[in-house]
């Protein structure tokens, strides 16, 4: 399946130039309050919900940066960060 991802440095490129980095789950849990369970949840548990999610991508065949986009997993189309689906 081919789709386009917009790199903040290089612009729109073929999805084949990128490596998926997983769902963006926000900042790491605070080490002072972290338990094995919270760390396990942070590392391994993902929402896996159909719809728009914020996720990490790596431009491995291009400029080599990590960045986040919002993508609708049911259509493979990027969604603007300002759209209602992304905000939700």
């Amino acid at each position: 399946m081919a789709f386009t991802i917009t790199c903040p440095i290089c612009g729109p490129r073929s999805g084949y130039e990128f490596r998926y980095g997983g769902q963006d789950k926000g900042p790491r849990p605070d080490p002072a309050e972290m338990t094995p369970e919270t760390w396990c949840d942070y590392v391994h548990m993902t929402d896996s919900c159909p719809g728009v999610q914020k996720e990490w991508w790596y431009h491995r065949a291009g400029c080599g940066i990590w960045f986040t986009i919002y993508r609708d997993t049911t259509t493979n189309l990027e969604v603007s960060p300002d759209s209602p689906e992304a905000v939700a």
Binding site: R13, R60, G62, C63
Partner: peptide
């Protein structure tokens, strides 16, 4: 400058 694959090489 463009950064990307050429002959499938970064």
């Amino acid at each position: 400058l463009y950064q990307g694959p050429f002959a499938q090489v970064p």
